[in-house]
Structure formats: C-alpha cells, structure tokens
Write a protein that binds this DNA or RNA. Structure first.
Lengths: 112, 112
DNA sequence: TGTTATACCTAACGCCGCTGGGTATCATAC
DNA sequence: GTATGATACCCAGCGGCGTTAGGTATAACA
C-alpha cells in the first residue's frame, strides 16, 4: 500500500506520461497503472476522475467522447501542447527530489 | 519551485533519512535540505515543525533539549527503532513509484 | 432476468503543507 | 545601549486533494 502523499505526488506526472504515449480513457488508465506497477498501484475511480477533470480545466489535457470497439461510450483524453510542457516540468521536479533523496540515503550508507 | 504534492510526499522520507545519519535540530535540518538539493528545496519552519511533532507523536523520532555550541537551546531529534523501520518502508514505496514512473517515461521515449 | 464488468460521476471528510503570524536569545553594528 | 538580523522554537487558519462511499447507465453473460 502506497502512502496517500506519494500517490498525490505521482498522480499528475504519471497521468501526463501515460497520455503522452497516446489518448486513453479512465478505465483503461487505471488498468495500465496497475499493470505498469506490477499490481502495487491501484488507482480508484473516485481519485482519478476528479484529477482528469482538474487537468482538463487547466488545459493540460483535452477530452472527446467516442464509441469504443465494444460499443460503449468512452471519454478519451489526450495531451495538449501545454500538457507536454507540464510533463517536462513534472519530470524535472521529480528528478530534483529523487536525486536529493538518494544523495542523503547514500551518505547514510557510507557512514554505516 | 517544487510542487506542494511532491514536497508533501518527500518530507517524511527525507527527514527520516537525515536523522538516520545522526541527531539534528530544526534549523540545521532546513539548512541541510537546502544544501543537499543545491538550493532547489527550501523548507519553511511552519512546515517543518508540525512534521517533527507529528513524527515524534508517531514515536518514529525522539527529542531532547540540549545546549548548542553557540549557547542556544536546541531541540535535538534522533531516530527511534520504529523510525528506522519506517525509513525502509518509505524507501521501498518511493522506489516502487519511481520505477513505475520511469518505466512509463521510457516507453514514451521508445515510441517517439 | 439478474449479475458482472465496463464506464462515468459526485459529496463529505480528513489530512497536511502553506501563509502569516508570535516569542525569545545572541551577535553585530551604529 | 539599542536597533537589526540570525538563530530557534511554536501555532492558527486556509485550501487543495485523495479517500470513502456512494450513484447512474449500458453491454455481456448466465
């Protein structure tokens, strides 16, 4: 079980990264996250949909209703130009924190 | 400027990691974080102290008042046994998310 | 016909960092 | 000697966001 804070921090960059590979929709995104994390990450719908709406509101992603192969209506999301830029910002921020964290961890390893 | 969510997610593991290297106190911790991150991370006191109190409440860290070399009273914190375990849990969770994120990012790189 | 999977949405709650304060001591400068 | 800045601690109120726990609707299957 991943802590709430980590989920909060990783949701936006992960979503943007997934949509950067091509358009997708809510249900499929939840499955992809589960697969990619080897089952460690289990996003809930109640968490994902508000995030999608928020990102759309921020103009980082765009949506359009389409009919899936199974005859069901799906709301497909894709990255906007601003979303692509935002993804890069997210990646840099993540790297900054990750590097700082590993630097401290490695220092500990040296002393112990 | 690092996003609020990322700060929230990294505060606890970073604090535990710093104290794992030896006891320290609020003001010095803020400086260490600033140095370690190359100035990218700037913790505020209003953010740090409540976190320290919370971690102490969770028995992950222990505190004791001491007199610093400069004649000032300082509240020194150190890791408890439970805190050491918690640090390992935090590290694992961080790795899980980091690996998932980089996996998705690399996939994107392959397709583009 | 009813149950499961798909697919979307929302309201109330709680946690937690952020902002913007406050208090006190010590060193330095004027 | 007194003002300023650095050190060092603390707290209240606010807002954002995941969580929990619901709801609606359609297609497939039994």
């Amino acid at each position: 079980m991943i802590s709430k804070e980590l989920v909060a921090a990783s949701t936006k960059p992960m979503l943007l990264a997934i949509l950067a590979k091509g358009e997708s929709y809510g249900y499929a995104i939840i499955e992809e996250v589960r697969d990619r994390s080897g089952g460690e990450l289990e996003w809930s719908e109640g968490m994902l949909y508000p995030v999608l709406h928020r990102l759309e509101n921020e103009k980082l992603i765009l949506s359009s209703w389409k009919l899936g192969e199974n005859g069901r209506k799906r709301k497909y999301y894709r990255l906007s130009a601003a979303g692509t830029k935002a993804l890069e910002v997210e990646r840099k921020q993540w790297s900054t924190i990750h590097n700082t964290l590993t630097a401290i961890w490695e220092t500990k390893a040296c002393l112990s």
